[in-house]
């Protein structure tokens, strides 16, 4: 098992009941779990077009969730 912390942003905060924006969510995952499985476990639907960053980089769905890392999950944004 590995543990990661997840922080949700924009309307994704509503995907998890009683989400605490300060602490985020601690998740226990089987080692080798992918970003995609994290999204699945949190119940974030594809229709929200989520994207995930860790340590300043955007991760692919097939990337492994980093042990002990913090994932940030967003919806798409554009500038203005």
């Amino acid at each position: 098992m590995i543990t990661i912390t997840v922080k949700l942003f924009s309307t994704l905060r509503k995907c998890v009941p009683d989400y605490d924006p300060e602490r985020g969510i601690a998740l226990d995952l089987p080692s080798g779990a992918t970003v995609e499985s994290v999204l699945g476990q949190l119940g974030i639907p594809d229709s929200k077009q989520p994207f995930v960053t860790c340590q300043g980089r955007v991760l692919k769905l097939t990337d492994q969730a980093p042990i002990g890392g913090t994932l940030h999950i967003f919806q798409p944004v554009a500038g203005g």
Partner: peptide
């Protein structure tokens, strides 16, 4: 469009602060 439908009415362009910081 999820950006204009979900993100903009709730946060406006301020919704960019988190992702841009997260990207360093």
């Amino acid at each position: 469009n999820p950006f204009s439908r979900d993100v903009m009415p709730e946060f406006g362009t301020a919704g960019l602060i988190a992702p841009v910081n997260s990207l360093g």
